[in-house]
Design a protein around this nucleic acid. Structure first.
Lengths: 203, 203
DNA sequence: CTAGTTTTAGAACGATCGGTTTACTATATA
DNA sequence: TATATAGTAAACCGATCGTTCTAAAACTAG
């Protein structure tokens, strides 16, 4: 009963996601969203209810297709630092490979943290969730990597290592919007730090 | 000759700075700026030319009254880590002391990095300058602290320490917009890191 | 006191914002 | 064929945006 939707929802959401990623929520106008999605207002509103609804869908899509696949490599459970090295290598690759004019620089959620999240509680919750997911994944990989050595790492030291690596990840995404080379240097610093903590485990 | 200005320029700039700090450039409307400064549009435009002119004045004011005084403690030249400890203590104090509803959370320039700076070259240049100033000051303090020990720190290790501390500073300011306690934990991590590098120098 | 200059107050500008509504067409099922 | 849903395109809404303009108010120089 009734006509079927002719566009792929996830394609539209991805196009919107890239625009929000690049310009942020406020600076992305409905006219812009029409342009990048190829849809009219009517279709967008029919499918997503509002600009904000489209944004929320874009954030969810971002978490599922960008963040979680990246963090997944930290969950391999390898008994050395290879998962951590692979994680930072992945970030370095995607940061270094992007075209100079690519809108997809940095991290959508890092950008939200500095902007929307400060005054929008739902966004803040999403950003907090991301930070916790990142920290948990890093912690898991650090524990896995140290479980081969005789002495367990004290919890306090583990927490500091988690924070150091999460900090380098987030600030690299932040700096990527301004200076790509320095962002890569920050990620290399993280990688080198890991290698220093777990000698012999790097590639 | 002519009527005299009835308001103090720097007071107005500071009020505007706090608004931009809190809400960012785009989300701060002329009506908001009128409200926080107590001035009418005419006076604002007469004194600063445009919204952007006021913003630029606010950023300059921020650099001079917030950033540089903070970085100044890194330039004491003390032959131990006290300058670094004092720097992070200062950040911790100002982060922990702020009222929960204070608009002055995080760092105006960190917020700009994730927002305006990505598409506005003048802002990008200011943010880059801030990042370099921060790194240089941290490097200076690190060199001063290690100059008492017999062995010089290799340049590569020094660069990594600079990046680690700069990263913790910036990400703490980023996270402060979402989770103050975690921001403080990041700053404590930096402080502990310094203490570990230069044992015996902490308070 | 007047002339000239600058600061103010406030209205008004044109543009654009997100969002809604309308009218009409196309495609599906029952 | 009847009808329900999805599509487009357009006009339209009130609100808000940054900016400009006009004119009154407040000062100094002569």
């Amino acid at each position: 009963m009734g006509r079927l939707q002719t566009f792929d929802n996830s394609v539209v959401v991805q196009a919107a996601r890239d625009l929000f990623w690049d310009k942020g929520y406020d600076a992305s106008s409905l006219a812009d969203l029409e342009a990048v999605t190829g849809l009219g207002r009517s279709s967008l509103y029919h499918a997503f209810g509002s600009k904000r609804g489209l944004f929320d869908a874009a954030v969810t899509h971002y978490l599922e297709t960008v963040i979680r696949p990246r963090l997944a490599v930290l969950r391999t459970g390898a008994k050395d630092a290879s998962a951590l090295i692979a994680y930072f290598d992945g970030l370095i690759q995607s940061t270094a490979t992007l075209a100079d004019d690519s809108p997809r620089t940095g991290c959508l959620l890092v950008n939200c943290a500095a902007g929307l999240a400060a005054h929008d509680d739902p966004t803040r919750a999403v950003v907090e969730g991301y930070r916790i997911e990142l920290s948990d994944a890093l912690r898991f990989a650090l524990i896995s990597a140290s479980s081969s050595s005789a002495a367990d790492t004290p919890t306090a030291r583990l927490d500091e290592r988690v924070r150091t690596l999460a900090s380098l990840s987030m600030s690299a995404m932040l700096v990527a919007r301004v200076n790509r080379d320095e962002a890569i240097a920050l990620l290399n610093t993280a990688s080198n730090q890991v290698s220093a903590w777990f000698p012999g485990a790097s590639s």
